[in-house]
Design a binder for these strands. Structure first.
Length: 278
DNA sequence: TGCCAGGTATAGG
DNA sequence: CCTATACATGGC
């Protein structure tokens, strides 16, 4: 009889799980009633909103080393627990009606601090794909190359070593199209240890973007998304077609980055989540 | 059924 | 620095 791990985490400024999931930063959350089932860090957890934070239940077999305290640390970091998003969403210039509305509409969105390798591979996949198609490809990669999370039927995202072992046929079967070779080469570079997360984390924003862009299939947009969501570089402002559309419509082409340091990435996320209004 | 998707590499100005 | 074009495949 194993004990059920369940605990509460306060998230400053609160969270709206639905809005956060729909804001196109994470692609593996599984909706389960009012909660979400989330695979990450070799675990499976069930998360639901509670009193300005979340209740978190561990669904996978606990590892010997993960005591409740370290579990709380891991997931507090993942949900960016310490940053007060209620202050950030009040940052928009009152004269900027568009951004003010986007931020208000985005109340409850947080920037999730995801695993950097998973984020990189996921956003390489994302180029010229719809969000539902991205999710399908990511799940196929996990099922083909990843291992089952202990005590569950859900697959973990593969390590670089696991991913590089896939044949080109196996990769193609994940619906990757021309991105298959990008994925393979990136997995090889990481498996060789040239790009370990610790090294990348030590780089400043500009160097991190430049280093990521040296990988084939990683351009400025994928590099910025990886840095924002996989390295929690909250000041970076990825520009995709939707953001560009907003910039052309409301800003004469460029965003006033100087007003929102060091949280331009969060403003970007509010705008992206608001894209249906464009 | 055809169009489009959270872009990038490449060639050429 | 900029612009034009090809690109594999799924989802709707």
């Amino acid at each position: 009889m194993k004990s059920v791990e369940k605990f509460y985490i306060e998230l400053k400024g609160g969270i709206d799980l639905d809005k956060t999931e729909k804001s196109g930063q994470c692609f593996r959350w599984i909706k389960d009633g009012d909660a979400f089932i989330i695979p990450a860090f070799g675990m499976l957890v069930k998360v639901s909103e509670a009193r300005g934070g979340i209740d978190l239940e561990l669904l996978s077999s606990p590892k010997k080393k993960t005591d409740p305290k370290s579990l709380a640390e891991i997931w507090s970091k993942y949900f960016d627990a310490g940053l007060d998003y209620s202050k950030i969403r009040k940052m928009p210039d009152k004269k900027d009606k568009f951004l003010s509305e986007a931020a208000e509409s985005g109340a409850g969105i947080r920037i999730i601090y995801q695993d950097s390798f998973e984020t990189l591979i996921t956003f390489i996949i994302s180029q010229r794909k719809s969000i539902p198609a991205i999710k399908t490809s990511v799940e196929r990669i996990c099922e083909t190359a990843g291992r089952k999370i202990p005590g569950t039927d859900v697959y973990d995202f593969p390590t670089p070593d696991e991913l590089k072992k896939l044949s080109s046929d196996e990769l193609s079967a994940c619906g990757l199209g021309y991105r298959a070779s990008y994925i393979h080469e990136t997995a090889e570079v990481f498996a060789r240890g040239e790009f370990d997360a610790e090294y990348l984390s030590g780089l400043d924003d500009e160097a991190l973007i430049g280093t990521l862009m040296s990988l084939k299939g990683v351009g400025v947009k994928v590099a910025n998304c990886t840095a924002l969501f996989g390295f929690h570089r909250l000041d970076l402002f990825p520009i995709d077609v939707w953001i560009q559309r907003a910039l052309d419509t409301y800003y004469d082409g460029t965003f006033p980055l100087e007003k929102y340091h060091p949280y331009n990435g969060i403003m970007q996320q509010y705008i992206f989540a608001y894209r249906g209004q464009l």
